[in-house]
Amino acid sequence: MKTKFAVVLLALLVTALGRSLLAGDSAEPSRAAEPSRASALLPAKDACCVVAPAATTAAPCCAVVEKSAPCCDPLPAGAPLSARSLYQLDAKWTDDAGQTVKLASLRGQPVVVAMFFASCEYACPVLVSDLQRLRAALPSAVRAQTRFVLVSFDVVRDTTAVLAAYRAKFPLDAAWTLLRGEATDVQDLAMLLGVKYKQDARSQFAHTNLITVLNPAGEIAHQHPGLQGDVSEAAKAVEAVAKRVSVAAKAE
């Protein structure tokens, strides 16, 4: 029996190292099950114009315009959404001005999205400040076309008025969109982004701090975990997807 317990403990330690219990559970093959995508943070390899965190240049299909690269084709309005576009989410969100917003309305431009809640005592202000640093690091032409979107976990307390006050406090200009939504829609978005969150007894949310760059098609192009880190890779990712927008504009 001791051996079995050791096996269980070993599997647990594997998890502690941030690896998939399933993929890494070689000592217990009976329960080993292979998730079809092992990486917790990287988007699928076939996502359009993916920029890996370690990459220093844009993916070839974004840097070089080729007619044969479908993911770099211009995005005509009304064209079907790509298979990996987050804009397939049909949820209706409300912004801090009380306007109804669908994520698909963000299509056609680089978008940087993060999840937060307004009464957050520590991480969220730092996360927003990271986003501001990221924005400042962008060339002005890219900065002008990039939207920054903050989506609240707190479906109860973060009313439009609270979000408006949050905007005023920083302040956040018109490039920023602050959204609130229904609990299931928040959960869906968090699931797709890979953001974990949990409300604690003090009604604070424990959550993953994650900055996600979406390309103009709404596909995840880059993710930056953590706080107060180097955001230069994320900035490069935004630049890479922005190039695609300008190429598309010229083509039109």
């Binding site: 647990l12 941030g18 917790a40 005592e121 520590y122 991480a123 974990k196 604070q204 959550h207 706080l227």
Partner: peptide, 20 residues
């Protein structure tokens, strides 16, 4: 997806250090 989120993950990435 609430599993393994530590309350202290607000203090860091919440992805590795504070989990399991």
């Amino acid at each position: 997806n609430t599993a393994m989120v530590s309350g202290e993950s607000r203090g860091d990435t919440g992805l590795e250090r504070t989990l399991f």
